[in-house]
């Protein structure tokens, strides 16, 4: 894959997407948004991809929207419309990540600020280096959290902490983020990629279809009633029950051996 602002590297069933503007703390540009959408599209299509790692190159994970590129817009051409920009770029990207039927793991190597933090929150699992930090930086420049942060954050940390993080734009350490329930794990910085790859390899060997159905269910449950969710569970279980991996899982259980899941 020839991308300018990201790296797309596959090793076995694990795809690693690396935000790659290290001299700018991987701040997000239009090109990067476009490339991320393309990369996730490829990742969805390619059956050999069964788990995805999202990480950043250099010392930061992602500093959020590249504000230089906002300032550059020609005001005579109507200036910069945040609403239109979000609707056309970040919003579909975040939905695409949630709708991708494969596990996405954030490997947070450094600061994740603003929309960079939103990207972390939109992943399914989150591991951070102990040197990483997180902030809802939006308020610092008079903006509001976007790219799903207001939705994800409350669910992860509860409304009390979410409100303080959003209103004050306070920077929290990886350990604090872990204590708040944002992260699955905090690891020493030099162990980050090994730990993440081990987890990704485990998930890449798991029944991929069922993982996709679990993602759909979890997001559905967040916005529906118990009765509706029970019905959706029945639908998803129906689908999971028809997968080859379920047949293999059942067979292996009966034969008292370890299953070999193909992701089908």
């Amino acid at each position: 894959m020839a991308y300018e602002t990201i790296l797309y590297e596959q090793d076995g069933g694990v795809l690693t997407i690396t935000l790659n503007r290290p001299d700018k703390l991987n701040a997000v540009t239009d090109t990067m948004l476009h490339e991320l959408r393309d990369a996730f599209k490829q990742a969805k299509r390619d059956e050999s991809v069964r788990a995805i790692i999202l990480t950043g190159a250099g010392r930061g994970f992602c500093a959020g929207q590249d504000l230089a590129s906002v300032k550059e817009r020609d005001p005579s051409a109507g200036g910069f419309s945040y609403g239109a920009h979000l609707r056309h770029t970040y919003n579909p990207l975040i939905l695409q990540m949630r709708e991708l039927p494969k596990p996405i793991i954030a490997a947070v190597n450094g600061v994740a600020a603003g929309a960079g933090m939103s990207l972390v929150l939109a992943c399914d699992l989150r591991i951070a280096a102990d040197t990483a930090s997180f902030l809802q930086a939006f308020i610092k420049i008079g903006l509001v959290p976007d790219s799903g942060s207001t939705w994800f954050l409350q669910r992860l940390v509860g409304p009390t902490r979410a409100m303080e993080l959003m209103l004050r734009g306070t920077r929290i350490s990886a350990q604090e983020a872990f204590d708040y329930g944002i992260l699955n794990r905090v690891v020493p910085a030099d162990r980050l990629m090994d730990e993440t790859r081990a987890l990704a390899a485990e998930l890449a060997a798991a029944p991929t279809k069922a993982i996709g159905y679990i993602k759909r269910l979890a997001d559905f449950a967040a916005t529906h009633t118990l009765a509706e969710t029970l019905e959706y569970e029945a639908d998803m279980q129906e689908l999971a029950g028809r997968t080859a991996d379920h047949a293999e899982g059942l067979q292996a259980f009966l034969e008292k051996r370890a299953p070999t899941f193909q992701g089908r």
């Binding site: 759909r216 959706y232 639908d235 998803m236 129906e238 689908l239």
Partner: peptide, 11 residues
């Protein structure tokens, strides 16, 4: 009220 049921695409 345009449609009776909405179900997962596969079904």
């Amino acid at each position: 009220g345009l449609v009776n049921h909405v179900v997962p695409t596969e079904l």
